[in-house]
Design a protein around this nucleic acid. Structure first.
Lengths: 240, 240
DNA sequence: CGAGGTGTTGAAAGTGCTCAAATGGCGTGG
DNA sequence: CCACGCCATTTGAGCACTTTCAACACCTCG
């Protein structure tokens, strides 16, 4: 059942950057924003497209990716509620540096980039928050790069599952994979077949159980012992 | 022959960020800066170290990397003249998010992070430049991630060589590899043995010639045809 | 029921890795 | 100047992991 298509300010403040705006600024954003539900598979924009808007996800999932001439694609990130995308175009001559596509039905708010640009230029505190957000993002990417190099396929899956847990979560854990396995595979830089086999191996080696999209295990240690040895961060690594 | 250890303002303005400072601010940086020559292999700081300074390279090469418990390391970047590093700690609770080590004898300027922080907070234009620099950096990393996934070992080398050329360079080209092959290998995410074999293959497939650290070829097309098909950017991709 | 999407499995091929050994350059100490 | 040792690089052989191609199972939807 689709959410009523009205924009609430909390839809914006769900985003780590905009959560630092004062109410007046949020209102300015809201009044120029539009909201829309896209069916699964919709292309929001392509790499190199002229950019006039940035986006915030209210519901559903979106993948950010780059595509080569011969059709291969590299997934940069897969994001959901409260995540912002397209804002990077501000710093790239108003050209989107990657493509964005929904991978589930998704409800997304669209806001003119100009407003964001103004906010950054006018409001010093806001600019500082933007810096923090970008720095966090950069660290995230560095870590991602490390993972792709250093972890085996089953370790990558284990690491991904760990990041799905709340930090310091205790006791038995039941997770649902947030989107389909084919996509998850390429999010982790592998083929679907490899993913399937790697998941089976992870199951065998760590004793977690998997049924469909549901993953169950008794303690995070079961996974962290297995996955985190091939990583430079120490376990509860989400709070970076 | 070591450069005289005196700090010149042009050593700072060689950096893309600091090049946007006015003379007064540069002087402030200079007056709190120290300069030092480090022998090859010096560790400047380790991941997780408490951070009080950021650095600018005057001469030589530095690698930025992350290391896992079991000794494997992922190289984030290898940088030289005019590049800045360690500045990311400003946004990470004054903890360096990666390690830095010289890979050749290197002359490096050290500046208190506090000064940088002040500059960002006081000077709006400077903060904006910081944002641009970080955005460029992020795009760079995205591209890097794509390369690791999508390119074969020989293509990675070809791509690296292309980025060593000046954009739109015409005619025959002679390059020198900027640092040793072992490091270059891990910069590109492969083992030295693989690098050696991949280089041989690149030579055979594209007709370029290699002797020691010297690479010669007639035209960039020789390489771009081979390497750039597996990349989402179109050829002269340095000007991103 | 049949179609199409999603996920799994099997066999064969490919690519990069490990381990081990050979090569070659280069600086040091004789 | 030479012998030696060190280090970077190359080469070879075998191995491990991932991919590719193909087939099949399963589920949902029309």
């Amino acid at each position: 059942m689709p959410k009523a298509l009205k924009i609430y300010s909390q839809d914006l403040t769900a985003n780590p950057l905009l959560s630092h705006c004062d109410e007046g600024m949020i209102q300015k954003f809201v009044s120029s924003a539009t909201i829309k539900t896209y069916p699964k598979g919709s292309v929001i924009f392509l790499q190199e497209d002229e950019a006039s808007y940035f986006y915030i996800i209210v519901d559903g999932w979106v993948k950010l990716f780059r595509e080569t001439l011969d059709g291969a694609e590299a997934i940069i990130d897969v994001i959901s509620l409260g995540s912002m995308f397209g804002e990077g175009a501000i710093f790239s001559n108003n050209i989107y540096p990657h493509a964005a596509q929904t991978i589930e039905d998704a409800t997304i708010i669209r806001i003119p980039l100009l407003l964001l640009k103004d906010a950054i230029e006018e409001d010093k505190a806001f600019a500082m928050h933007m810096l923090y957000v970008m720095a966090a993002n950069r660290n995230q990417q560095d870590k991602e790069l490390e993972h792709r190099d250093l972890q085996s396929a089953p370790q990558k899956i284990g690491c991904f599952l760990l990041r799905l847990c709340k930090p310091h979560q205790e006791g038995p854990i039941i997770l649902n994979l947030p989107y389909d396995k084919t996509l998850l595979a390429s999010r982790l830089g592998m083929k679907p077949e490899t993913f399937s086999r790697a998941l089976a191996k992870l199951k065998k080696e760590t004793g977690i159980s998997i049924s469909g999209a549901t993953v169950t295990f008794n303690s995070v240690n079961q996974l962290s012992d297995y996955s985190c040895s091939a990583c430079s961060s120490t376990y509860p690594c989400q709070d970076l």
